[in-house]
Amino acid sequence: MGAQLRRWALLGFLGLFILFLYGPTLTILILSFQGPDGGLTFPMNGVSLHWFARLFQAQAVGDFGGSMLRSLTLATLVMAATVVVSLAAGMAFRRRFRGANALFTLTVTSLIIPSILVSLGVGLLYNLAGWDTDWYSSAFGAQLTWTLPFGLLIMFAVFNRFNPAWEEAARDQGATPWQSFRHVVLPIIAPSVVGVALFGFTLSYDEYARTLLTAGSDNTLPLEIIGMTTSVTTPVLYALGTLTTVFSAVVIAGALCAMRLLKR
């Protein structure tokens, strides 16, 4: 009896936690369909797409289209770089090499240095060197200090469980190193590579602290949102939130589907 009761209590706790995670996001999802006269909170004053339409009239809320485009481009670049470097580093780390430990420590350090310090440091470095900060150069680098460690750690975890016997078998059959990588290693780790890509993309797409001082004159989307929180007091903010959240959800769902397919 006691055990049964405890089990229900614990499952209830988990339910509450999930509600806590998703509840607020759902409220703004609903509120973004607020009617034209509606305010920032309940009750709903009718249902409309008014605020979504407002969002696309660029002058009203700043440069929404431009920052969205920049964020997407940047996220794609960061994703590509993260996947290539993590994959290469993952392969390299399977053999011991000089500096392996140092590189590993550096990776972990990069994760735990407060984000604003990275932002400030990169910004200053560009300042001292006399270069202009821009979203595709300095912000790109600053974001990699966040996405790469995640990618690397995932790849390490994957290769730790990777059985080298498969590769040896391929080599015994006369496969070149490229062939064994392309036809043996890659298919096995493909789902994890998609995972790394997902991390790279979404972490970059939502990143603001590291981008703040490194993006130069053109804002990325999260920076635009930060600007809006202080100046915009209409449900436009929620419409934007809904849109980016739905977009993230689509990307995540796509990646999960791809992982399932590749696991076959």
Partner: peptide, 28 residues
Amino acid sequence: FLVCTIPFLTSNMIRMISWIPFLGREGL
């Protein structure tokens, strides 16, 4: 587990903003 980790991949900014209609003076 996925349900518990997915929010990590969505925007922190938006997740913060979404507390406003919940906690405000005239909030839920």
